[in-house]
Design a protein around this nucleic acid. Structure first.
Lengths: 112, 112
DNA sequence: CAGACATAGTACGACTGTCGTAGTACGTCT
DNA sequence: AGACGTACTACGACAGTCGTACTATGTCTG
């Protein structure tokens, strides 16, 4: 079974998170489920990787956090939500451009 | 200018080196020039990254080293050449398979 | 109604690969 | 003679990922 190594995906964890936040604010657990879903179970981000990414990305001002109730009635435990910033959107667009370049370079070294 | 970040390529430095060694033995300086050439100047591997990759890859038995003269007459300074092993070839093939998977996954998170 | 399982995280230290900086030493060209 | 290309080695810093462990609430099921 071929498995995706973390060293490969490393440069794109932030991008994946931002991709999901482009659709609207979300929180850790939900984001990790989304990544699993979108990747069709081919990639599952580790919890520690995810939460340390949040810390880094908030420091970089790519995302902002806010605490809110899970449902409007105020039921359930409060969660920390993250929202993408303008700077984060810009970064996401740059990463998408970079991807095209990176893909081309790597493919020159791959035997199909 | 979009630039390839090392975090992205990180998982593929070894693969690039192996790709070049698939064509026959080579040595550090030559390999670094080849990578630059093949990538059309879009990627230049750092010397320290390259040589530390050699150490790791030799330990993993993906490559073997031998010292030889640069030309058959015995002129010039001796160099350390590297040759891909069977295990290295196997690893290279796996990485090529992995690439297809990784590419598909990342692209699901990229806006074109 | 107890226990399992899902949800939603935090803390901490280890590890790996990359990179900056610096230095060595020989060869070749001008 | 000096600059530049070739061919490396040493060393320590750093960033991102990961394993392990722990907390705590909510919900479902026998």
């Amino acid at each position: 079974m071929v498995e995706i190594s973390s060293d490969v995906i490393r440069g794109y964890n932030d991008t994946m998170i931002l991709c999901i936040l482009m659709k609207g604010p979300s929180y850790g657990y939900e984001i990790s489920k989304q990544i699993k879903l979108i990747s069709e179970e081919k990639y599952v981000i580790k919890e520690t990787t995810l939460y340390s990414a949040f810390t880094r990305m908030e420091k970089n001002e790519h995302i902002e956090s806010f605490v809110a109730d899970p449902d409007p009635d105020g039921n359930g435990k409060k969660r920390t939500y993250y929202r993408i910033t303008e700077k984060g959107k810009e970064y996401y667009r740059e990463k998408c451009e970079e991807w095209a370049l990176t893909k081309d370079v790597i493919e020159k070294f791959i035997q199909h």
